[in-house]
């Protein structure tokens, strides 16, 4: 086996084992910071793990046996997407697997046919409609940026070919953020929707004080809900990985910048969560498409034209 393959396998395994730990800790930190912003003491940082363990010990009841299978498919595809990402595979595949995971989530939620999950599911579809274009555009953005930025292909013997592969995207001379700040803004914006944070925690929220109670996840009990929580941790780590990808270059010092960026983005999400009310779906739709078109769209145009300008 080659060295590159070993690294690939190790990083995929590391993701599968460490992501839930990291995700749980992140949620714990999130709760703590939120509590301090609200002048509360807050739970200890390891609290999410106890919550999930307790959920596993609870009885699992569902009106539809298919629910558990669909939920397991959901977590499988989330882990699969994360594995692809950290294994250095295709960005497009990563986001498409993530969409597939969302579809399984929606199927699992709607398998029970209750009123609250019904409303939650419809809202989740709207949320997907807000997120997906940004995700795919970010993948396209990385591709175009790699063409402009000039990938460091000397070691591979290839010259300046654009690529969707994560393993190529981390091997660039200049960080992607230089070429795609608009994509970055759009991506951070949809992260608020992805992390289910106020103002965009419409389909389900981290707390039940909402008109649809828990909406999408209202019908998951015991272990099933624990699975959704863990899937959410995987997803969170993966999406923060994408944030890091904007800053990573072939220079090892760039990883420090990437980590710093991830911390800032994470803090920003908590800050937004605590300084805004939950908006209605139509405003979310307008806002996210507006930001995506204005930021990512403009950026896309520039990236399309720039190579031609540079060539002349």
């Amino acid at each position: 086996m080659q060295k590159a393959d070993i690294i690939k396998i190790v990083s995929i395994l590391a993701f599968i084992v460490l992501a839930p730990v990291l995700g749980g800790l992140l949620e714990g930190i999130d709760r703590k910071i939120s509590a301090r912003m609200q002048r509360r003491v807050g739970p200890k940082i390891t609290q999410p793990f106890y919550d999930v363990l307790k959920l596993f010990n609870k009885e699992y009841i569902s009106v539809n046996k298919k629910q558990l299978f669909l939920l397991l498919s959901h977590i499988f595809f989330v882990v699969f997407a994360g594995g692809l990402f950290f294994g250095g595979y295709d960005m497009l595949m990563v986001f498409l697997s993530l969409s597939t995971a969302s579809i399984f989530m929606i199927l699992a939620a709607s398998s029970t046919h209750t009123a609250y999950t019904g409303v939650g599911t419809v809202r989740e579809l709207v949320q997907m409609m807000c997120c997906e274009p940004a995700e795919l555009l970010v993948a396209v953005g990385f591709y175009l940026a790699s063409a402009v930025g000039g990938i460091h292909y000397a070691s591979l013997g290839l010259a300046n070919d654009p690529s969707f592969m994560v393993k190529d995207l981390i091997n660039v001379d200049k960080p992607a953020i230089m070429y795609m700040p608009g994509f970055f803004i759009a991506f951070v914006f949809i992260l608020t929707i992805k992390f289910r944070k106020s103002p965009f925690d419409l389909s389900t929220s981290h707390h039940a004080h909402q008109e649809v109670v828990k909406g999408l996840t209202a019908e998951f009990s015991g272990g099933a809900y624990a699975i959704t929580e863990i899937a959410e941790w995987y997803e969170e780590v993966m999406l923060l990985g994408v944030v890091a990808l904007f800053f990573v270059t072939n220079n090892p010092i760039s990883y420090i910048w990437a980590a710093l960026a991830v911390i800032i983005v994470f803090f920003l999400e908590i800050l937004i969560d605590n300084t805004s009310a939950r908006v209605k779906w139509d405003l979310m739709f307008k806002a996210s498409w507006g930001v995506i078109l204005a930021c990512a769209g403009t950026n896309l145009l520039v990236l399309e034209i720039l190579p031609q300008v540079l060539r002349h």
Binding site: S34, M37, Q38, R39, R40, S198, P199, D201, S205, H207, H209, Q210, N274, T275, S276, A277, R278
Partner: peptide, 12 residues
């Protein structure tokens, strides 16, 4: 404030 999901305001 809690009804429209603004927890910090609720606590304040």
């Amino acid at each position: 404030a809690d009804g429209f999901g603004f927890e910090a305001l609720f606590n304040e």
